[in-house]
């Protein structure tokens, strides 16, 4: 009997944490289902680009994706914009409480009406802010042209800091920074390092202000049509692959940061408690503004998780 084929398409290189996670899932899934399932991984947007992969999934042209969480807003699930809010997750513990707890589940349910089932949240990491001048206090951001990826929340975040957000494709950022089309940007350390942005940024502050993550999703009709035992095996495989992917994402961020520090082209600045408080203060209005889009309750539910972890929100 022919194996069930799952086309798993993503938009990054195979060597990235997400790429390795996808590869790991392929290995585990094929092993756990005894070859009843064959996973074909298509990295680097080979089949579908950033902008079209979600539609392709809904059409059933691919079965599995791992898009960035920012992609779900335009799909009609604006609640996912909550992940973009600055300082909504004070640390990784709170993040995990959300993604692995009831809030994460509830968010995934919003996708079902779009013909999508969410299987897992994969980390990319927390973002740091970089530019060609020191960014100690929020006021240092005033007037800077900052590259963001297309997102209403990130736009509002930069504006709240007095900066001018510039939407730009990830692949163009290095050159834009080098030539001064934009002054700075925000990235998890691993992205900053792989794109060599530290070569063209003099300063970076370890703000860890925002979170970047992915969701592994499948076509609902396809998923529900699978034999129950296969589905169970795939879920187990996904759980292990998720742990694997998140661990290497963390490791990758740590080594990237160390390597950029060693390269010496960028000065990395650790925030003092007061500085962090000032940034949080300056960015708090963004949460309030976002209420009308993502829903007040959702934000408060996340606050509750943070408070349960000992933070005052």
């Amino acid at each position: 009997q022919d194996p069930i084929v799952i086309k798993f398409s993503h938009v990054v290189a195979p060597e990235t944490p997400k790429g390795k996670g996808a590869e790991k899932f392929r290995e585990l899934a094929e092993k756990m289902t005894n070859g009843r399932v064959k996973i074909e991984v298509y990295p680097n947007s080979q089949l579908y680009k950033d902008k079209e992969e979600l539609e392709a999934l809904q059409l059933g042209a691919v079965q599995m994706l791992a898009p960035s969480l920012a992609k779900f807003g335009p799909l009609g699930a604006k609640e996912f914009e909550v992940f973009d809010l600055p300082y909504i997750f004070p640390d990784k513990v709170v993040l995990q409480r959300v993604t692995e707890g009831p809030v994460g589940k509830k968010l995934f349910q919003k996708l079902e009406s779009k013909g999508i089932i969410g299987l897992a949240y994969w980390d990319n990491g927390f973002k740091i802010m970089s530019a060609n001048k020191p960014l100690t206090m929020p006021a240092d951001m005033k007037g800077l042209k900052m590259r963001i990826q297309s997102s209403k929340v990130l736009d509002a975040q930069m504006r709240a800091l007095g900066a001018l957000p510039q939407v730009m494709a990830f692949s163009e950022v290095y050159q834009a920074l080098q030539t001064g089309v934009v002054d700075g940007t925000e990235n998890p350390p691993s992205n900053m390092y792989t794109q060599k942005m530290h070569e063209v940024q003099k300063h970076a502050t370890l703000t860890n202000h925002g979170y970047l993550g992915y969701a592994v999703i499948v076509n609902k009709k396809f998923w529900e049509g699978l034999p129950a035992d296969v589905r169970g095996q795939l879920e187990t495989a996904m759980k292990e692959a998720t742990k694997f992917a998140n661990d290497i994402a963390q490791a990758e961020n740590d080594t990237s940061l160390a390597q950029m520090k060693a390269a010496g082209t960028t000065q990395f600045h650790e925030q003092s408690k007061e500085e962090r408080a000032a940034w949080m203060q300056a960015l708090k209005p963004v949460h309030k503004d976002a209420e009308s889009r993502v829903g007040k309750e959702l934000i408060e539910e996340i606050y509750k998780e943070a408070e349960a972890a000992g933070y005052k929100m």
Binding site: E55, L59, P74, L75, S150, S151
Partner: peptide, 20 residues
Amino acid sequence: RFVYHISETDQVSADLEWPM
């Protein structure tokens, strides 16, 4: 057919938020 299919969802464009 594709447009019909998309019109049944709430998809909007990323920046302008116009119906896809």
